[in-house]
Simulated scan of single mutants.
Amino acid sequence: MPVQLLPCGSEALLAQFDSLEEALDFDAAVGAAAIHGVVETVPAARTVLVIFDPLATGPDLLAGHLRRVASRPASPRPAEANQIIEIPVVYDGPDLDGVARHLGIAPAEVVGRHTACLWRVGFAGFAPGFAYLLGDGSLEVPRRAEPRVRVPAGSVALAGEFGGIYPRDSPGGWQLIGRTDAVLWDAARPEPALIVPGRHVRFVAVAP
């Protein structure tokens, strides 16, 4: 895959790609390669920030390793059963009917597509515990023309090619189709974020 590497401060390189899939493939490949000196990777929609220890490696040496990783064929990412997180959802969101109209289907079909899909966790961002989820493309809808001043915590939402769950009350412009009681972020847990990159999410419809 073609990659452009840019310096980002004195302890990181920013890898840029043409697509989300390329960025995620590269992030997984860097993790699997266990490159000496790499401390952490931070994937995003078209980029991967590679943070390194300057006492263990340098930007030129690391760039060579990263280009070699990018030149290899992408490895498949299996969805093992123990990586699937089930999220119970009450599908009564204020934008559910509008999403259905935009897609030209019934609200029940929106729910059916949302629960039938195995969503892959792409990357985290926006707020602690918020994960950008990748579906099968059947529920792609635009953001709201006017963002809401307050979106309640636990709101299950869609925007563009992504799905997501708001981990706390915040402003937001995503389309709200349901709500969940799942706790997305808890600093007291060994792993504070419930949903992290590399795992998968399945939504389960429940009664209010």
Rank of each mutant, 00 (worst) to 15 (best):
E21P: 15
E22M: 12
A23Y: 10
D25R: 08
F26L: 14
D27T: 10
A29F: 03
G31V: 00
A34I: 00
A34R: 11
A34K: 12
I35S: 05
V38P: 10
V39I: 12
E40H: 04
T41N: 08
V42C: 04
P43E: 01
P43I: 05
T47N: 14
V48I: 12
L49N: 04
P54Q: 01
P54V: 01
A56M: 15
P59V: 04
L61R: 13
G64T: 10
H65C: 14
H65I: 00
L66G: 06
L66W: 09
L66V: 06
R67H: 12
R68M: 15
V69H: 02
V69A: 05
V69M: 09
V69N: 07
A70P: 14
S71W: 02
S71A: 13
R72E: 10
P73N: 06
P73H: 03
P73F: 00
S75D: 09
S75Y: 00
P76D: 00
P76Y: 00
A79D: 01
A79S: 12
A81C: 08
N82C: 06
I84A: 02
E86D: 13
I87P: 04
I87L: 11
V89R: 01
V90I: 14
V90R: 09
Y91H: 04
G93N: 03
P94C: 00
D95S: 02
D95H: 01
L96K: 03
D97V: 15
D97R: 10
D97N: 12
V99Q: 06
A100L: 09
A100G: 13
A100Y: 07
A100E: 06
R101F: 06
H102N: 14
L103M: 07
I105R: 12
A106T: 12
A106N: 11
P107L: 02
P107K: 00
A108Y: 05
V110P: 13
V110N: 12
V110R: 04
G112T: 04
H114Y: 09
T115A: 05
T115G: 02
L118Y: 05
W119S: 03
W119F: 02
R120H: 00
G122M: 02
F123Y: 03
F123P: 11
F123G: 07
A124P: 10
A124H: 01
F126Q: 09
F126P: 09
G129L: 05
G129N: 05
F130Q: 12
Y132T: 11
Y132E: 13
L134A: 11
L134S: 11
L134E: 14
V141K: 07
V141I: 13
R143P: 15
R143G: 15
A145W: 04
E146S: 15
E146C: 12
